[in-house]
Design a protein around this nucleic acid. Structure first.
Lengths: 249, 249
DNA sequence: TGGGTTAGTGGGAAAGGCCCACTTAGTAAT
DNA sequence: ATTACTAAGTGGGCCTTTCCCACTAACCCA
């Protein structure tokens, strides 16, 4: 089966794709972007929901990350504020077309500035709420497993970083930010401790304007450095047990 | 340029490899395993030092991780106690043979139980000390960059996990473990705080034997669970500044 | 003007790390 | 033997940070 080309490359090359897990928060719910698999001859998992992604185009993509950005822009029409690599998944059976490996990226964005489906058919795109078991949704390929890993990573990092700030609109109040933390972590945080820490970290710029509503107006903030997450010295407290994390997967 | 085979797979497939960054500590020095690139017609970077790794064999390897384990066993002859994925690196230029992507694994092992070069020519294998800039060594491919990322990951995780325990021989004293932490972190830790934390974490089993030497004998310990690292609630203190880590790479 | 609701703060108790100094237990040398 | 030396291991106070609860502040609405 190895079709010899040159001396050095006499191995079958696995199929190579890039997939993106992109999260946002809206209506107090964590959501992930899914796309519907095309229906057609030879298409695997036709009509099923899947993570956005696809084959690397060795002619167009200079590297893995720009491939991920290209695919994201094709779907959402925006440049995501946060993108990091999640990991890669490869084995003989995940794609019926053959041995395949996917490079998975992990992205966060606020929902205020996105015109979804900018480049696609709206009915084929969906911000799916991440409930207890979105795994029960039977996503295409091994995307349920990948999504679970992304969720674990998100929750883990939210414990001790400012990642949720990338899920917010440009301007937000401290209470709204705290709510986002709480939605992701699934538990409540202490108001005082939260405020003290976040403000002490010097992450936010005060906007000279207040958010008005039915109650006392709240100070508006915006992220100072939109490129880097902040790492807190300690995780946010008020939790139950310390977690034991070992080798991934 | 895409040579059409079927409707679904009309993209050039990148070259796909797996590489491993494996660390150990000996003589109070952090070391990484390197192999010498073969010399031959069409071989890239002939004679240069590189991370162990190679092409995926779609016939032999069920998945990425078993490919990594296979290659490690071929080199060191042992089963490593700790293995996690580091990430993947792919672009058009890292391999002169074409667009290539590598899946990188990150491994730790103690040096007491390894018979290096079990499966290879000894002169072609080397535990290279990780000095300030091993990057100056001009490793093959983009392996210097990958090694730097692995080092960052190692240092970062050592701040708040029990990873260094996987770099120790089977039995060791608390002071020796602390020395390993210090070697990796490049700074000294407080003896009392270190002991209190490690013992409270209940990671270690007491060996009913003491290590004798020129001074007061020290209690010997061994790792209780050799499969999982422990995550401490807080990082080891006595440092300088909190670090700001953002998107990887 | 008073009720309701959310924003934001004060302050003390409690927990746990940090750090220094002390004791302990062995070898080696006089 | 006695003494010096060195590394193992401990006692205990200081200090930071969280935790928790209650209080004040500011606005809308009826």
């Amino acid at each position: 089966m190895p079709h010899v080309k040159t001396q050095t490359i006499d191995f079958d090359r696995p199929l190579t794709t890039v997939d993106i897990v992109i999260f946002t928060v809206s209506e107090e719910t964590l959501r992930v972007l899914l796309v519907r698999r095309p229906v057609g001859e030879g298409e695997p998992f036709p009509g099923r929901w899947a993570l956005p992604g696809g084959f690397i185009d060795t002619a167009k993509d200079a590297d893995l990350e720009s491939c991920a950005r290209r695919k994201l822009t094709e779907k959402t029409g925006v440049d995501v504020p946060y993108l990091e690599q999640l990991g890669s998944y490869g084995n003989a059976i995940r794609d019926p077309r053959g041995w395949s490996a996917t490079h998975v990226y992990f992205a966060l964005m606020g929902l205020d500035d996105v015109e979804l489906a900018a480049g696609g058919n709206a009915s084929e795109l969906r911000w799916a709420p991440v409930h207890a078991d979105i795994t029960g949704e039977a996503l295409a390929f091994d995307h349920a497993e990948i999504l679970a890993a992304a969720l674990t990573r998100l929750r883990s990092k939210v414990e001790y970083t400012s990642l949720p700030a990338f899920l917010m609109p440009v301007e937000f109040t401290l209470t709204e930010l705290q709510r986002t933390y709480e939605v992701i972590l699934g538990r409540e945080l202490e108001k005082k401790a939260f405020r003290t820490r976040v403000l002490a970290a010097d992450l936010l710029d005060t906007v000279p304007r207040m958010q008005v509503g039915a109650n006392r107006p709240a100070q508006l903030y915006r992220l100072r450095d939109t490129r880097k997450a902040h790492v807190f010295a300690r995780p946010f407290g008020s939790a139950d047990a310390p977690n034991a994390a070992g080798m991934r997967r």
